[in-house]
Amino acid sequence: MGRFHRHADGTVHDHDHPHDDHEGHDHEHRDVGDHRGYTETGVARVAVLESILSENDRIADANQADLAEHGVWAVNVMSSPGAGKTTLLKRTLVGLGERVRLGVLEGDIATSLDADELQGLGAAISLVNTSAGFGGECHLDAVMVRSGLSRLPLGDIDLLFIENVGNLVCPAEFNVGEQAKAMVYAVTEGEEKPLKYPVMFRAADVVVVNKIDLLPHLDFDLDQFLGNLHDVNPHAAVFQVSARTGEGVDPWCRWLLDAHARAA
């Protein structure tokens, strides 16, 4: 790439120049942040070609390495608010019982309500409130998870649930170092959701269809939903459960145990 010049009349052109990029040059920068000393003749376009999330991904890799070192298999659990993540987790912790050592990293914008719900079920729990930033982040990122991991006894955990902030958009964009992404979807949300929120539905390795005990009371078309899900993500494992009654929770628990065993 050449050196770009922008002239007073607005035209921009570039000269082929072997070292247009100042990267690596040994300039001394005095008065950093104060540019009054500059006389501008134009600008140099410097190629960056870096993912916006590269810093997040670097920390996610570090999280993954720490988890692997301790033999922890982690699943990032995502859903819209109220789809039943915490209720499903309670059932799941009870269902898995003593078969594996459990941990939960609980992400919430504010309050410890969900973390409190999960106390006393045999899992080590770490709470991450995301409200430290501008009025509360809508997702967990790798840095927040790293902080949450530092408060967990990783050596005593086999299977770790990372309960994300309830939100169908943002959590899907941020890797946190997990081995699998699970999505909890409630049948009260409507059949079209995979088409409206394709990034999350595409990212999921497994989709848990929750609240099936309500099906007799809804106009929900389960086949249409499953068709939409398949169109967007043909590879996801699907479980139909009621976290409220416990129906269908056993196959989901077996999937988790199998996934953990395969990774071990």
């Binding site: 500059y38 006389t39 376009r45 410097v46 960056v48 070609l49 870096e50 993912s51 916006i52 964009e173």
Partner: peptide
Amino acid sequence: GFDVELRSGEELQIASIDIAQEV
């Protein structure tokens, strides 16, 4: 057909920055 490969559409990239020339 579903036998497709994604060629573009998942970009989230900083392409370049324009830095003022120092004289």
